Simulated scan of single mutants.
Amino acid sequence: MEEITEGVNSMNISDSHKKNRIQVSNTKKPLFFYVNLAKRYMQQHDEVELSALGMAIATVVTVAEILKNNGLAVEKKVITSSVDMSDESRGRPVQKAKIEITLEKTANFDELMAAAQEEREMRNEEQS
């Protein structure tokens, strides 16, 4: 959990008022880094906004589906758009697809998180 907290603290959040936004990039961060980060944000803010451009869109959709399929989140809003970006290699602007998915935690989110924590603690005791 400590590495998730570090990730939250070091995230570059462009809108200072959007403290519950996760901007997913096409870096080599594991998928479950974003899943765990989204869980953490939902614990703190009751909802999370997942945002991505271009090739990172698939990661955002997968993270949202994992959270929904595990009963942790429900979809509140999905916005798709395109943004103009400058492409230095071609010297002209290009359009990139953009997605923003807002998820809110389910009524039994806290229960499910507590059960998962309990299960982890039991596994750790068995290994000790």
Rank of each mutant, 00 (worst) to 15 (best):
E88V: 10
R40N: 12
K77A: 12
E100D: 14
E47P: 01
I66C: 05
S89P: 03
Q43W: 01
V60P: 10
G71S: 00
T102K: 09
A58M: 05
N70I: 00
I101W: 00
Q95A: 12
E65V: 13
M55F: 10
N70D: 14
T59E: 04
S51D: 11
T80G: 00
E100N: 10
N108T: 15
K77C: 14
E47V: 02
I79G: 08
A97D: 13
N70T: 13
M85F: 06
E104P: 00
R90V: 15
V83Y: 05
L72M: 07
M55L: 13
L72S: 02
Q43A: 14
L53I: 13
V83R: 13
V48D: 12
Q44K: 09
L72E: 00
V60G: 11
S51Y: 00
N108C: 03
V61G: 04
Q43P: 01
R90H: 08
L103H: 03
E75Y: 02
A52V: 08
K76N: 06
A52L: 09
T106D: 03
E75V: 15
A73F: 05
I66A: 06
I101D: 01
V83C: 08
N70V: 01
S81L: 02
V94E: 09
V83S: 08
I79S: 11
L53E: 14
A56R: 08
L67E: 03
L50Y: 06
R90C: 09
E75T: 09
R90T: 15
I99R: 03
E100K: 09
I101R: 00
Q43G: 10
N69A: 15
V61S: 10
D46W: 04
I79N: 11
T102A: 13
V63K: 01
K76G: 05
V74G: 02
E88R: 12
